[in-house]
Design a protein around this nucleic acid. Structure first.
Lengths: 215, 215
DNA sequence: ACCTGAACACCGTTCAAGT
DNA sequence: ACCTGAACACCGTTCAAGT
């Protein structure tokens, strides 16, 4: 076990190593002691840079949002919204821990401000009033958060062979007496499990509603 | 410490006691050992009824969805969808742990089938085809999931005085050079933080999009 | 079957100390 | 300032045993 020499640690190195561990072992499987082991230091070395585990979580979340912030591109406002929301979805699918970091940690506020700024700018330019822009931004953002959370979960389930078996078993055990509509729509429901089509279906509904409000 | 006599334990009692602890201490603060202490038994007594902690999580989630399942009511299909989604939101706000249980645990499938059945029935009766009904159900469900997750987090932040201070401090520290639109729309953005109005704003967008698809 | 008790391999964090 | 090492109060879970 090579001990890392002094003064080689930094907040950035710690955050990036932590991110790697979270993606490898899942957010719940992550531990400060494992992180310290990976860095070649004692567990307490990390406390020089972060007050506790939660502060490190927040730093990882902010790091992801800062480096992977989506851009609006150009074109009509609908395409710009699609680009921002799609970019945010890509970021979350690429870093599943981000979903849990956004949904399961207190919000200092700072972290999502960058995203809000570009999103609100697009909506204001499109002609939405202050309140509509603010509400539309949150409606779109929470949709991305929820649909990505669901998609991530299904994806993880389908990667585990035991999980696939369980899902199939559940579907086959459904009695069409208790759940006639679910059984009837089973093929269509399987279409909805993840993928860009389902994501854009809901996004298009929101955009259609927004377009109607604008006119 | 009164030891609970034998054969007084049951899956139901364990699940309900676990739910109480999760609501009191948060999902992350919950532990099997604390649960055993509350029940007046040794930690291993629980393993007679559940194979491990994850199975208990799933049981709590299924219990909440089974007992608190929302009903469509009657009226036009838009009102029925509003009733179902609003009921699901109420359930999640009342039991914040449900958000984390739905977003952070593998999906066996079974647990959300009851909800899917009533929701799909409403959408099919409204005239939506099989694929539209399936996709609309998931789009609406994931919107409820995301917006409730966000709302729960903000609520928790605002209940903690330290959290309120942090939120205010962040808002005041935003330079209008870096984030002009966010600073300008600060009053409107504060409107979006939770509450039924914001929830229904997004829900109405989705319903408007769906109505357009039907015609 | 239902439950205990000791044990194992972990946690996050405090505290005093070393460089 | 930067980091160590021992210690504390926890975890989930296994295993052998008791009723």
């Amino acid at each position: 076990m090579p001990r890392t020499p002094r003064n080689t640690l930094s907040p950035e190195l710690i955050v990036e190593t932590a991110l790697g561990l979270m993606e490898a072992k899942g957010t719940n499987g992550f531990s400060l002691r494992a992180l310290a082991g990976e860095l070649g230091v004692g567990p307490m070395a990390i406390y020089t840079y972060f007050r506790n585990k939660d502060e490190l979580y927040d730093a990882v979340r902010d790091h992801l949002l800062a480096t992977g912030a989506p851009t609006p591109g150009d074109g009509p406002w609908q395409d710009q919204v699609r680009s921002i929301c799609g970019g945010l979805r890509d970021l979350m699918l690429q870093h599943p821990c981000l979903v849990q970091l956004l949904g399961g940690r207190p919000l200092s506020g700072q972290e999502t401000v960058g995203l809000a700024e570009i999103h609100l700018r697009v909506l204001r330019s499109a002609g939405f009033g202050p309140e509509d822009a603010a509400r539309a931004h949150i409606a779109l953002f929470t949709y991305v958060l929820g649909s990505t959370s669901w998609e991530t979960q299904l994806k993880a389930e389908r990667q585990d062979p035991e999980g696939r078996r369980r899902l199939r078993a559940t579907m086959e055990s459904l009695s069409s007496a208790d759940y006639p509509t679910v059984v009837e729509l089973a093929p269509e429901l399987s279409l909805t499990s993840g993928g860009p089509e389902q994501f854009e279906y809901g996004l298009d509904l929101l955009l259609a509603g927004l377009s109607a409000r604008l006119g």
